[in-house]
């Protein structure tokens, strides 16, 4: 079963190959496979050829291994393991190394510009790849977190689209909250 190949066709008609086990990291693809509607090539009209390899790379790393990203979220500790009678310390160590390695991989994997980030998030959302969606959403959040409204506008290339009256009101809101903070 692990050798079964699936073909994915991007929005610009390029075909990519992926193992079935890896493809199962995507809920959407998994449903198509399990539904038996597999007809050679699966068309993905929402994913372009410059993003699809990136998605496949993620699936290959995580395919058939749904627990890994969860383990990262838990700080590398799998709680269920502790109640197992044949708990193996060596195994646990190996697991930690694996999780650390995965974290490092994810860091390198996520090194791209904003444009790719949005497209990848859209693809992850469309293909229902929870781990990838989580990574991209967190990266977007980290680009906004702790920044002033002006910095956010600059970062995301946004022009304030408020009318002059609204602008006035916005400044008031901003001041009010800043005052409240300063007062503390």
């Amino acid at each position: 079963m692990s050798s079964t190949k699936i073909f994915l066709k991007s929005s610009d008609d390029k075909t990519f190959e992926i193992d079935e086990t890896a493809a199962r990291a995507s809920e959407t693809l998994k449903n198509i496979i399990d539904g038996g509607c597999l007809d050679g090539v699966i068309p993905l009209p929402n994913v372009s050829s410059n993003i699809l390899p990136k998605v496949i790379e993620y699936c290959k790393k995580h395919g058939g291994d749904n627990g890994s990203s969860k383990k990262i979220a838990n700080g590398g500790v799998d709680k269920d393991k502790e109640i197992l009678p044949d708990y193996d310390e060596e195994e646990d160590k190996r697991e930690k190394v694996r999780v650390d390695e995965l974290k490092k991989w994810e860091e390198e994997y996520m090194d791209f510009d904003q444009q790719v980030l949005y497209d990848l998030m859209l693809a992850a959302n469309y293909l229902h790849i929870k781990g990838l969606l989580d990574l991209t959403v967190e990266k977007a959040a980290s680009m906004i977190r702790g920044r002033t409204p002006d910095q956010i506008r600059e970062n995301f290339n946004i022009n304030s689209d408020f009318t002059p009256e609204e602008e006035e009101e916005m400044i008031l809101i901003e001041d009010e909250w800043d005052d409240e903070w300063a007062f503390d």
Binding site: T148, I158, S160, M170
Partner: peptide
């Protein structure tokens, strides 16, 4: 509230 002053979106 701080985010809401960035833009209407």
């Amino acid at each position: 509230c701080r985010l809401s002053v960035v833009s209407s979106f």
